[in-house]
Write a protein that binds this DNA or RNA. Sequence first.
DNA 1: TATTATACATAAGAAATTTATGTATATATT
DNA 2: AATATATACATAAATTTCTTATGTATAATA
Lengths: 112, 112
Amino acid sequence: MGNQKLYKGSLQTIILKLLETNDKMYGYEITQKVKELTKGELKITEGALYPALHKLEADGLLDVEVAKVGNRLRKYYKLTESGTKETANKLEEMQEFLKTMQHLVNPKFSLE
Amino acid sequence: MGNQKLYKGSLQTIILKLLETNDKMYGYEITQKVKELTKGELKITEGALYPALHKLEADGLLDVEVAKVGNRLRKYYKLTESGTKETANKLEEMQEFLKTMQHLVNPKFSLE
DNA sequence: TATTATACATAAGAAATTTATGTATATATT
DNA sequence: AATATATACATAAATTTCTTATGTATAATA
């Protein structure tokens, strides 16, 4: 783990985006979903994920709901109202960054 | 300053890419070039830039050459041989990241 | 029955910034 | 002439965000 290149600051945005699309997810599910969607390109470690989820919750962007499945706990997270707004902001920021970086590092194939 | 979103870890790549394109640059010039190329979208602060340049130099990726212009110093940086190789690696990594994130966050290209 | 997968968590340390501050010269503005 | 802005470097404290390591426990698989 920790092999791939995940630029610091992008994890929050990834989590928020997944919750926007999937409505309700638990931590372990998020790690698996990211691995699946990126074909193993990105691997979210637990040491990064759980503190990030706790922070998003503390900041009021996520609500949590504990479920018991069999004998095991799951903590389902979903966007709050303000979380939904912040998701839109962060996605826009990310898009801007991607466009800017694309232009910087590969002017030839710039999207704009 | 510090308003824009510069994901941590991308600054080194930006510096290396600029030096690949421009052969030889000094610090202040880099801050201006980034501002110009990104139309003010990204602003590299001195507190980030100078330590980054020193680290790249310490890691053997950059050579430095001091010049006196008028009565003022300039430190011109350029890629070493190993810096050129590392630039290629970092650019490839960045391209991968941009592609991956584009798929993750861009609704149009979203996989789910 | 031993390993892997599922599912949470935290803590120490590292890396890369931000923010603040400092020094000094050159140029432009009032 | 005085003041502000631009040029050009630098560092240090604090903060953010991650990596790496470790811990607990249940469920499924080889």
